[in-house]
Design a protein around this nucleic acid. Structure first.
Ligand SMILES: NC(=O)c1ccc[n+]([C@@H]2O[C@H](COP(=O)([O-])OP(=O)(O)OC[C@H]3O[C@@H](n4cnc5c(N)ncnc54)[C@H](O)[C@@H]3O)[C@@H](O)[C@H]2O)c1
Ligand SMILES: NC(=O)c1ccc[n+]([C@@H]2O[C@H](COP(=O)([O-])OP(=O)(O)OC[C@H]3O[C@@H](n4cnc5c(N)ncnc54)[C@H](O)[C@@H]3O)[C@@H](O)[C@H]2O)c1
Lengths: 225, 225
DNA sequence: CAGTGTGTGTTAAAATATTAACAAGTTTGT
DNA sequence: ACAAACTTGTTAATATTTTAACACACACTG
């Protein structure tokens, strides 16, 4: 029994000083995903309580997170799903599709490229690159793997700022250097190695090995009990 | 309509072990990896300062982390790489190879299975499973994809406690239920969905979409400057 | 074998993040 | 129109994590 409700239109931009913590920013895409699901199910209004059930975060935390950026809800009622989604899209920068490049068309690079083309409407794969000539024949859902030589031009021509790198750890640093040199400012790194870059370049590490190994720690702790 | 007063309890609250924080545990595999590299290069002694350079964590944090579990270093000198490695292996539980199963032999499942067989000496892939009959012909580095029907027996016979799941989000919960039912206590979930499990089961989410989307937030912040 | 340099381990302080409490709006029912 | 029922947004309290400081132990030197 969803009801239609539109809150007033308050100042949309950031609140005061940007006290946006890293962990908060990582929760925003989760909210966004839940909202997408809710909207698909024609739910118009959602309370922080129910949002808590869906996300696993506490209702207090959700309210606090959202309040960081403005007053998006209606007291006594909840949040309008479409309105909140729009706001979150603006905040995260996902309101316009972002073009990214993938470097390394190995197993992981292919899986990620494929996945993002099919399932992630918020990004567009502008290109995938590899140093191995044998890879250049391959095509992933219509996108041809290109040689590294073509990377600088494409990045600069299209003004691309974001890249995923799925190359062996040994060459990851040189790939980063190349990317940074050509204007990339944000890198999602899957290689299990520490990368160096200028302070204005953001590097996030998606270290799947760490995830698995730390999980094992917990699996053993549990057994003791 | 009756209403509950208390909100849902938050995901996981460690009652006793507040000593070892989640973030600390995630740093341990990083230390371990660096130590492996150092030992391979015949480095015998390492200071927290140099370890800081290699890992990106501060030297203070490294010393504090290690001191949580004991006094592994020598004052005035540093840490013996082999000795520290042994200690960390014991602490993380990686001293004996852990057998795990993979559920979902799609693109990501195949990449992960392959990677762990080739590059991760700390785990052994005991089996990979899929519900799609077409997948059953496939073989990943000698490991044949098995039907879901064979999963319970293998888990129970081999006493397997850890699993990675790489199935579509829509079926992830039912897979978790099946795994838990058969004795799995730790799950690394790659599906972008919140999973429910008994409190004694550890679920880690490796949400690659979140990583990419939160990175985009930062890439845009930078541009403003 | 004292003296000095070095880097750990521990304790204290600061910074962050989470949790809780509640006042302030909003809707609904009468 | 008013009160009851809700739920947000904000402020305060608590917990956790990180940073800093420094005393202490060991090694090396002359
Ligand atoms: N596959 C996984 O599940 C997994 C898990 C954890 C970590 N990783 C990490 O992700 C990265 C990729 O893994 P993968 O399994 O896809 O490896 P892969 O060997 O299948 O692919 C690596 C690709 O990088 C290309 N490459 C090599 N040098 C290059 C260079 N200088 N410039 C551009 N491309 C280059 C290779 O040609 C190859 O296609 C590795 O660092 C790996 O450690 C992968
Ligand atoms: N591939 C990526 O790069 C990527 C990135 C982010 C998230 N993910 C997530 O990881 C998961 C797997 O992604 P993928 O790209 O490998 O998908 P995929 O479609 O290639 O593979 C999914 C596999 O799961 C199997 N499966 C379906 N239902 C099953 C069931 N009930 N029991 C057992 N197996 C079942 C399918 O047969 C298929 O082989 C998805 O949830 C996806 O959202 C993937």
């Amino acid at each position: 029994m969803p009801r239609e409700k539109k809150p007033q239109n308050p100042p949309v931009k950031d609140k005061k000083g940007s006290k946006t913590s890293k962990s908060l920013i990582k929760r925003l895409p989760v909210y966004l995903r839940i909202l997408d699901n809710l909207i698909r199910r024609d739910v118009d209004i959602i309370s922080s309580r129910v949002l808590s059930d869906e996300t696993g975060f506490t209702a207090e935390q959700i309210r606090k997170d959202l309040a960081t950026f403005g007053a998006f809800g209606t007291r006594g009622t909840g949040y309008n799903t479409s309105y909140l989604r729009e706001k979150l899209l603006k905040i995260t920068g996902l309101d316009k599709q972002i073009r990214i490049v993938v470097v390394g068309s190995g197993h992981l690079g292919k899986a990620l490229t494929r996945y993002n083309i099919l399932k992630n409407p918020y990004v567009e794969i502008a290109g995938i690159f590899d140093a191995n000539p044998d890879e250049l024949d391959n095509e992933i859902l219509g996108i041809k793997v290109q040689p590294m030589e073509d990377l600088p031009l494409l990045i600069k021509e299209q003004g691309i700022k974001v890249s995923m790198i799925t190359v062996p750890a040994e060459v990851a640093q040189e790939v980063v250097d190349l990317l940074v040199e050509n204007g990339i400012t944000a890198i999602l790194n899957f290689a299990p190695t520490k990368l160096r870059a200028p302070a204005n370049v953001h590097i996030h590490n998606a270290d799947l090995t760490i995830e698995l190994q730390s999980l094992i720690y917990y699996s053993l702790e549990r057994e003791k009990e």
